[in-house]
Amino acid sequence: MKIAIAGGAGFIGRHLTNALTARGHHVYILTRKPAETEQKNTSYVLWQKNGARPETELTDIDVWINLAGKSLFGRWNEKTKAEIATSRLRSVQESARIIQSLQKKPNTLIQASAVGIYGTSLEQTFTEVSPVSDEDFLSRTTALWEKAAEPIETLGIRTVWMRFGMVLGKDGGALPKMALPYQLFAGGRIGSGQQWVPWIHIEDAVGMILSAIDQPRVSGPVNVTAPNPVQMETFGQTVAKVEKRPHWLPVPEFVIKGVLGEMSMLVLKGQRVLPKKALQHGYHFLYPELEDALHNLLT
C-alpha cells in the first residue's frame, strides 16, 4: 500500500514508519523541510510551506495518517496553547484540502486524537462510548481536532480517531523525563499519587494503528491505551522497582504547577481509560502490564 503520514518525523511517526516500511508499504512523509537522505520505501513530500503542492505527489494514496501537531510538553501560556490548537487544526484542514483535491481518494483516514477529550476524573472509567468533555483546554482542543476531520469522513472515507494516552518509549514521550529523577535517586510521589495514568507502550501504540488499518470494520474513536491503567503512585513505584532506585521524595502539587503552569494538569490529573474497542476487535497487547513494559524500555 501507499501510505501518507503527516507528523511522520515525530516520536510515534518514526516508529510507525519503520513498522510500515518493514511490511513492504511505501510511506510518504509530509514535512516542512526536505530530508537530507531518503530511506528505503520512504519519500518526503513538502507541505504547509509557500509554493508546496503535495497533492501532485500523492496521487495514489491508500491510507492517510495525520499525527501532526505541536508537542504538549513544556510550560503552557496563552501563546503556547494557541500554537498547540492551531497546529492541530491546520494539519487536519490541510489534509482535508489535499484529499478533496485528489481524483483517487484514500480509503482510510487515521486521525490522531487524545484521551484528554474525556476530561479528568479519579472515579470514572472511560471507554470509546463515554461522552466528551469541555472542562479544560485539552478536552476542548481535542474535540475541535476530531470535529475538523469530519469533512474527510463525509467523503465516504473510513475514519478512525486514535485517542492516544501516555505513550511510553525510550526515544520520546514522557517516560525519559519521568524516569530521570529515579535515576538520580530523587524519585517519589507526584502530587496526590491518586491520579490515573492511561499509559501504553510505543510498540502497542503502533500495533493498534496497524490493526486499525488492517480491519475495515474499525471506525470512529479508538482508545490507544493499555488494558491495565495504573495510578501515579503505582507508576512511580514500578519505575523505582525496575530502575532499582528508591521511591521516597514526594513532589507537591504547587511545585509541579510552578514549573509547568497549566500544563501541570497532564501530570496532576488523569483519567482511567480502557481500550474497549481494540479488545473487542481482537487486538493482542504485547505489553498489557506496566512492569513488563518498563522492563523492556528501561533495562
Results as ranks from 00 to 15, higher is better:
Ile110Thr: 06
Arg97Gln: 08
Ile110Gly: 05
Gly116Lys: 13
Gln100Ala: 14
Ala112Arg: 03
Tyr118Ala: 02
Lys104Glu: 13
Ser101Trp: 11
Thr108Ala: 13
Ile98Cys: 10
Ile117Phe: 11
Glu123His: 10
Ser121Met: 03
Ala96Gln: 05
Lys105Asp: 11
Leu122Met: 04
Gly116Ala: 13
Leu102Trp: 12
Ala114Ser: 15
Val115Asn: 05
Ser101Asn: 12
Gln124Val: 00
Tyr118Pro: 08
Thr120Phe: 14
Ser113Thr: 00
Leu122Phe: 12
Asn107Glu: 14
Gln103Gly: 12
Leu109Gly: 01
Ser113Lys: 01
Ile99Ser: 10
Ile99Val: 12
Gln124Leu: 11
Ser95Ile: 08
Leu122His: 13
Leu102Ser: 09
Ile117Leu: 14
Ser95Lys: 05
Thr120Ile: 05
Thr108Glu: 08
Gln103Ala: 14
Ile110Lys: 10
Leu122Lys: 12
Thr125Cys: 06
Ser95Val: 01
Tyr118Ile: 01
Ala114Asn: 04
Thr108Cys: 13
Asn107Thr: 13
Ala114Gly: 15
Gln100Ile: 00
Leu102Glu: 06
Gly119Leu: 03
Gln100Ser: 15
Leu109Trp: 03
Thr120Asp: 13
Ser121Phe: 02
Ile98Lys: 03
Ser101Lys: 15
Ile99Leu: 09
Ser121Cys: 07
Ile98Gln: 02
Ser113His: 00
Val115Phe: 10
Pro106Val: 01
Ile110Cys: 05
Lys105Gln: 13
Glu123Lys: 13
Gln103Ser: 15
Gly119Ala: 08
Thr125Gly: 00
Tyr118Gln: 09
